[in-house]
Design a protein around this nucleic acid. Structure first.
Length: 279
DNA sequence: ATGTCAGAGTTCCTCTGA
């Protein structure tokens, strides 16, 4: 299985290049974030013509997540248990949930397409919403893997966190003043490792960014950030055979400000090697 | 220079979010 994640920054603005990419790169499962449309505005037909099933979820011009898959998606969910909401500048137990998470099972893998809240600025209500949201996701992950330690679980998407200083090449993002690099955000990211997940791309691609702001020639200057990740449980991580960050997708006409991150998975597992050969 | 985008409403500009 070839699994990809991409913050597309509006599916309608660039559906051509997204479907072209999925077909050209033989993507089996494409998790998308920031589709920026309502569910019924999603260009389902364009994906279906190319041979994909799609589940999409959005209810305003902001946020929105989707998963396209060669195989049918089952157990589609539009929130993880305990997912906090946000409304009118404040978070809290009564605030409505946003369209930031979609879970589905495909090919034996539980995949979550995630658009972690941006945080806006340190101390902003949105920043605490971000931390709460990550905490609830970590709790869900911990409980899922406690109940089923061999679950093939993939949390993929735009985490809006640069976990190390090497992941931040944008001089406008300053430790102590900016979101994405603050210790609480980095601790929230590291907590997924405690929960039993690992970044399955970094061992194969130690450096490089996945996002470059549109402003101020950030891409030509390579002042980007690594904020898009594929985190996997041990059952998923054991199956990884390759990874690619498609930096070229930041080039050309109408690019998203993020590029796709892809992993190849051999989910047949070691049992294949034990199977007797029959001639 | 917060120098770019995308979407929607207050529409052929201004606002919000990123």
């Amino acid at each position: 299985m070839r699994l990809a994640t991409w913050n597309v920054n509006s599916i309608r603005a660039r559906v051509d290049r997204i479907v072209d990419f999925a077909v050209r790169e033989h993507i089996d499962v494409l998790a998308m974030q920031e589709i920026k449309c309502k569910t019924d505005q999603f260009p389902f037909d364009r994906f279906e013509e190319a041979g994909f099933h799609v589940a999409a979820y959005g209810f305003s011009q902001w946020n929105g997540v989707a998963i396209a898959s060669r195989e049918p998606l089952t157990n589609v969910r539009t929130a993880f248990p305990g997912m906090p909401g946000f409304e009118k500048g404040h978070n809290g137990p009564d605030a409505p949930q946003e369209a930031r998470a979609m879970g589905a099972t495909v090919g034996g893998v539980e995949v979550w397409s995630l658009y972690v809240p941006n945080g806006r600025s340190l101390g902003d209500p949105h920043y605490y919403y971000k931390l709460d949201w990550l905490s609830a996701l970590q709790q869900y992950t911990t409980e899922s893997l406690a109940a089923n330690p061999d679950l093939a679980l993939a949390l993929v998407g735009d985490f809006n966190i640069a976990p190390t200083d090497a992941d931040n090449g944008d001089p406008a993002v300053v430790p102590g003043f900016s979101t994405h690099v603050s210790p609480p955000e980095r601790e929230a990211f590291a907590a997924f490792e405690t929960a039993g997940l690992q970044d399955v791309v970094r061992p194969l691609i130690p450096t490089g960014y996945t996002y470059w702001d549109y402003k101020r020639l950030k891409f030509p200057r390579n002042e980007g950030m690594r904020i898009d990740f594929i985190l996997g449980s041990h059952a998923l991580a054991d199956a990884v055979t390759g990874a690619t960050i498609h930096r070229d997708e930041r080039k050309g006409e109408l690019p998203s400000d993020h590029v796709p991150v892809v992993v190849d998975l051999d989910l047949e597992g070691p049992d294949d090697d034990d199977r007797p050969m029959i001639f």
